[in-house]
Design a protein around this nucleic acid. Structure first.
Lengths: 214, 214
DNA sequence: TCCCTTGCCTACCTAACGTTAGGTAGGCTA
DNA sequence: TAGCCTACCTAACGTTAGGTAGGCAAGGGA
């Protein structure tokens, strides 16, 4: 969103931001192909050509919508990873932030998942550029944990991290459907708690307390 | 043109099946909205109206494509669950079959994931009807395992099962993108192995051997 | 005062979509 | 041989898509 930032920094166009916000929402809900520029324009109460004044083509708008998500991450994650004092805290805080990010606005998860399905090649590049470094960083922390023997030895750090990312993403993207499976009033809390337990148990080796419980 | 017709006439309605097969593939690859009836018809070398002779509308074809997947499951899963002699074997065989199902034809995972995003309400009904019973059955096996104290106590059976289902589904649906994360030649094997380890570790309580390894 | 940029508009374009109408060829059945 | 059915066809429909051309109003700077 470098180009976007420049445009926005010039000040003026709040309409542009409104369009982008509506685009993210509608793209996430309905998908890229099903969402017409007219529908997005209507949400902001302008006409289609006016929308195209801000984003010269639908393709540009789609890319902008995807990239706008990534920006939210750029500052948060590295800070958390470096601030945490021990592996346990690092795991908790990181997963917490990831979950909160998608939970507070599930459209984020939906949009990202849709983009992964619709434009895998385009997303590959974005991921390599924006997310790959953090994956490597997390992998290093995991490797250190393995050397300290607090993390399972038979674990591929990158594959594990990817599994967790995919799981978090999909869990919140498919939140609507969850109620079909779990007929409980607090299905969301259940799913979230299980998600954390799932990731934690698969990562850390059991302590004696956990093991001798039964 | 004539040769095609004769070839198709050989079977009862092999054209219909061919259309459905092509629809599943294209819907999975491109999504429902982006896939035109013309594109599907071309794959089978007929004209669009001829396609509509077999499936009266695009909507009907979409539903048929989704439902055709569910049929594949109806016989397999219950058999495995009942045949297995112990929890360990049951876990292995079930996960194995699920993974094989998506691995041999990743379009299945893609189509299902797309449908979950595009038509959550429609899918809810299908899931409730076709998949819910098995989820309950698996949950019962897990609960029994908890009573026998071989499965983690702090685990919600339904939430756990759903997490695994989502993870398997997404892992194979997003297989294309995986190479962007993991720069290894055998990324697929790595991901699959980690998937199994992930699910297994999060389910079964550790044995003493595993615990005392370090 | 004039002018130029910004942001929006109306009116229009072409291409593609799903779908319908109407018709044909060939194969069963009576 | 007549009548009907299946499986396809061509042609065209109305609608909607993304995108363009050109104009109009507001506002700041010279």
């Amino acid at each position: 969103m470098a180009a976007t930032q420049i445009a926005l920094d010039k000040g003026k166009s709040s309409a542009r931001e409104a369009v982008l916000e509506a685009a993210v929402r509608l793209f996430a809900q309905q998908g890229f192909a099903k969402t017409s520029l007219k529908a997005i324009a209507q949400e902001v109460d302008i006409r289609t050509p006016s929308l195209l004044y801000h984003f010269p083509s639908k393709q540009v708008l789609e890319t902008a919508a995807i990239e706008s998500l990534n920006n939210s991450w750029k500052n948060i994650l590295p800070q958390i990873l470096s601030e945490a004092k021990n592996p346990d805290e690092r795991f908790d805080r990181t997963l917490e932030v990831c979950i909160a990010f998608f939970q507070e606005e599930p459209t984020r998860a939906k949009l990202f998942l849709r983009a992964l399905l619709d434009k895998p090649d385009e997303l590959k590049e974005i991921i390599k550029r924006d997310l790959q470094p953090w994956l490597k960083l997390i992998s290093k922390y995991i490797q250190r944990g393995q050397e300290e023997e607090i993390i399972h030895q038979d674990l591929n750090p990158e594959a594990y991290t990817m599994s967790v990312v995919i799981l978090v993403l999909s869990t919140f993207a498919l939140g609507q459907v969850r109620s079909a499976f779990i007929d409980s009033s607090n299905a969301e809390t259940l799913a979230k708690d299980e998600l954390i337990r799932f990731a934690r148990t698969a990562l850390f080796r059991p302590t004696k307390m956990e093991n001798n419980h039964g």
